[in-house]
Design a protein around this nucleic acid. Structure first.
Length: 343
DNA sequence: CACTTGACCTGTCCGC
DNA sequence: TGCGGACAGGTCAAGT
């Protein structure tokens, strides 16, 4: 699934698009993807404006003017896609749903967004009338703004035509249905189980080498890959970046923490941060790398040194990359650069 | 307690 | 072509 860099890419993209917009409607096709009480949705989601878009670990947080937030976990196959008349932004699990017609069979939740339902303060009212004037000027009825998605397509997914009365949509797609979108009071976010247990942000300034080493050392009898994947030790690392960081640090993923030297962990700390930062710079392993400027599908893992590169030569020594299984996950290794340390 | 495995889901790929 | 099994960018509950 989207790991820290992918979720951060989504956050950046949505932070430029969502704030100020109001949620005018919501639809979902699978209860576990949107496990929220109808009365909460009516009271705290519909009509609320987006204030901010944040990220913690691999969790996306959309703060609303109702003092509630949409807390989103994309798990393995989640993705967020924003579409308006002129804008199209999508990131997350790289599939054609990022660029194709929506909704499709992976669509779990749809938000209808509007700029019309502004808050009842003076500025907002001014803004609203300005928008209404613009719409009048374009000869559009505010109740039936043109649909990005054609009516038939919506109905084929069981949507009421009413739901199409907006021209901006935010889609939560998730093929495997592991992900979820929860509506909870913003103040309660730090109290949910995941947030209470999750480890530090690896790119934060407070995350020093000594904090990293101290936390990793608590798991002395585990192999290092399992520890990197453990969200309670460090937040945000998943299968791609665990493999990439270990290759960069020349550490075999099966090596037990107790067999790693101080120097090993110092290097690993640096490589984790470099790998994550580089990936964020490149927009994660999906999104704009998934399609080129002409809208064609492209390679989205072209920065990887080992992940999904089994059978290809190591970029450092030319040895053929192999794939094995560590911590129950597919694991990519250069058998020459990454020798298991045993004592 | 530390650590590992199975379950949650759908879709795709690979071998017979 | 059809079918079974393995596997997939994650996390939690239940098991040893």
């Amino acid at each position: 699934m989207p790991e820290l860099p992918e979720v951060e890419t989504i956050r950046t993209g949505l932070a430029a698009l969502l704030p100020g917009k109001a949620v005018s409607n919501v639809w979902h096709d699978w209860a576990k993807s949107f496990p929220n009480a109808e009365e909460d949705v009516k009271a705290f989601l519909i009509g609320a404006r987006v204030i901010d878009v944040r990220r913690r670990a691999k969790v996306l947080i959309i703060d609303l003017s109702s003092a509630y937030s949409l807390v989103i976990h994309l798990k393995m196959t989640g993705q967020m896609v924003y579409k308006s008349q002129n804008e199209h932004f999508g990131a997350g699990h790289p599939t054609d749903s990022l660029i194709g017609q929506l909704p499709d069979k992976s669509t779990r939740v749809i938000f209808c967004l509007s700029e019309k339902e502004a808050p009842p303060d003076l500025n907002a009212r001014k803004q609203r009338s300005a928008e209404e004037n613009v719409q009048k000027a374009h000869g559009m009825n505010t109740e039936a703004v043109g649909t990005v998605i054609d009516q038939e397509r919506w109905q084929s997914f069981g949507l009421r035509p009413k739901a199409t009365r907006c021209d901006v949509h935010l889609f939560f797609n998730d093929q495997r249905k592991f992900g979820w979108v929860r509506l909870i009071p913003t103040a309660e976010i730090p109290n949910i189980d995941f947030m209470r247990k999750v480890g530090p942000e690896p790119l934060s300034t407070e995350f020093t080498p000594s904090i990293f080493i101290e936390r990793v050392r608590r798991r002395k009898n585990s192999n290092i890959k399992a520890v990197l994947l453990d969200q309670t030790v460090i937040a945000g690392i998943g299968n791609i970046y665990a493999d990439e960081s270990l290759w960069a640090a020349k550490i075999h993923p099966l090596t037990l923490v107790k067999d790693l030297s101080e120097q090993n962990l110092q290097v690993l700390y640096k490589e984790i941060r470099d790998v994550l930062r580089l990936s964020i710079e490149k927009g994660g392993s999906s999104d704009r790398n998934y399609v080129d400027a002409a809208g064609r599908k492209g390679s989205y893992l072209n920065f990887a040194n080992v992940f999904r590169r089994e059978g290809q030569p190591c970029n450092r020594c030319g040895t053929i990359i192999i794939k094995t299984r560590v911590a129950g996950r597919g694991t990519h290794i250069c058998p020459n650069c990454q020798k298991e340390i045993k004592r």
